[in-house]
Write a protein that binds this DNA or RNA. Structure first.
Lengths: 213, 213
DNA sequence: CTGAACAAGGGGAAAAAACCCCTTTTTTAT
DNA sequence: ATAAAAAAGGGGTTTTTTCCCCTTGTTCAG
C-alpha cells in the first residue's frame, strides 16, 4: 500500500525531527521532507526537489517566512496542496487567516497524538479537519455581519510610531506630514477602532501584532 | 548498561510525545515520564510515582504552573535534580530566571537534535550545558553592575491601570488615592525605568509581562 | 534617638493629547 | 466624466499629561 506522503515545515528542529519520528511510527504515513521556514519549502517545491506531498504540516510562527505568508503563496500557486496548520497560537485572527487562505485544518501543538493521527487521515480522505475551536470561529464569522477593519499602509506606519515615546509633532516630522494631518490619522483611527486614547492604540497595536515588542 | 533516565515536562503533547520517540532512538537514554505542566510533575514526584530521573526536560511556557514556578519549587525542594530548560523563548529575562533558579542548561526548541543529544550527555556527565547565548548573558551580568529593578505591589497595580484608557484621575479613584499621589507614582517609575511617557510605561509593562494582552 | 527612606499628598505651569468642525486636492469607482 | 471617498492640512479649545519643587507623617536601621 502506498503511504501518505507528508512534508513538515517548522523552524523548531527539535520538534520537526521528533514529529517525523512520531509519524514514522504510523504505518500509513511517511515524511518525505522537512523545512525550517516557508522560503526553504517554496524553493524546494519549485525545484521539484521531492515527490508531491499529500499533506503539508505547516507551522505558523516561523522566522524568515511565516505560516501565513507561506499559506498565501500556496493558495496562489498550488491551491491543490492540502495544508494542515500546526501552531501554539490559538487566537482567532491567526486561525482565520490560515483557514481563509486555504488551510484544511488548524491543530494546536498540545493536541493528543491520537487526534493528530485522525486529523491527518481525515485531511487526506475528506479533504479537511476542523476542530471545535476552528468551527466555532467559522460560525461566529457567519453570524456577526463582520465589518472587517482594514488599516492602510500609512496608518500602520503612524501606529508604529505612536507606539514609541515620540510626541505627535515628532511623529509628523518622521512621516513628513504636518502635525495637523497626524491629528487626522489619530482621530480617524480612534473612531475606526473605537478607542479614546493613544494608550488604547498602543494596546491595539500590540494585540494585533502591528508592533512587536 | 543502565540508561540515563529522563522526564519531560511540556504542555505540547505533540511535542513531548514526539520528543520521547526521538530520545528513545538514542540508546543512552530512556524517557520514564511525561507531564503537561509543573503541577502534574510535582504531584507525581511527591508521590514517588517513578524512579528518580537523571535529567528533567522542562518547558518554560506552560499553563497552570510554568517552567519558572516549577524551577523555583525544584530549587527549594530537590536542588539535586538536573534540569535542562527547553523553550522557544530566547529573551534574557526568562533565560536568567531559569538559570539563576538552578537550571543546568537552556536550549531553544530550534536546536539541532545532534546538539540536543550532546547537551543531554553533558548535563548528565558534567552537570551543565551552557550554549553561547546563555553564557553571553551570564558574562553580561557579571560585567555590568546590575542594578536590579524591583517594582512594589502598589506600583505594579498602578502600571496595570496605566495600561488602560483610564485617565490618571480615574486611576486614582480606582486605587483610592489622590491624583497627586498617582503623579508621584508615575514620576517615580519614569525615573526608575528611564521612561518619558505613559506610552513607554505601557510598552515596558507589555515587554515585561506585567500586563497580558 | 535620629536621620534616611518612603508613602501620601499638594501648587502651579508648560507641553502634549484629544476634540470639533472646516478647506483643498487627489484618487477611485461607476 | 463625474460624484464620492480619501488624503492632507488647518484654527481654536479643552482636557490630560508631564514636570519641578515642596510638606507631612511613618517606618526602620544604626
Amino acid at each position: 500500500m502506498e503511504k501518505i506522503k507528508i512534508i513538515i515545515v517548522d523552524d523548531h528542529l527539535l520538534f520537526s525531527q521528533s514529529l517525523a519520528y512520531l509519524i514514522s511510527k504510523y504505518k500509513e504515513f511517511e515524511v518525505i521532507g522537512s523545512y525550517a521556514n516557508g522560503k526553504e519549502f517554496i524553493s524546494a517545491y519549485e525545484s521539484a526537489d521531492f515527490n508531491l506531498p499529500n499533506i503539508v504540516l505547516l507551522d505558523v510562527n516561523m522566522p524568515i517566512m511565516d505560516g501565513i505568508e507561506t499559506m498565501k503563496w500556496i493558495k496562489e500557486h498550488h491551491a491543490e496542496l492540502k495544508v494542515l496548520a500546526l501552531s501554539v497560537n490559538d487566537d482567532e485572527e491567526t486561525i482565520m487567516k490560515m483557514i481563509t487562505n486555504g488551510a484544511k485544518g488548524y491543530l494546536l501543538k498540545d493536541t493528543d497524538p491520537i487526534v493528530f493521527k485522525e486529523a491527518l487521515l481525515e485531511v487526506y480522505n475528506k479533504g479537511f479537519y476542523y476542530t471545535e475551536i476552528v468551527s466555532g470561529f467559522l460560525i461566529n464569522k457567519l453570524n456577526q455581519n463582520e465589518t472587517k477593519i482594514v488599516l492602510k499602509e500609512r496608518e500602520v506606519e503612524f501606529i508604529k510610531l505612536a507606539c514609541t515615546e515620540k510626541t505627535y509633532k515628532e511623529i509628523a516630522e518622521g512621516m513628513c506630514l504636518s502635525p495637523k494631518t497626524i491629528d487626522g490619522y489619530r482621530e480617524n483611527l480612534f473612531q475606526k477602532l473605537e478607542l479614546k486614547t493613544r494608550i488604547g492604540l498602543v494596546l491595539y497595536a500590540v494585540k494585533h501584532k502591528i508592533v512587536c515588542i
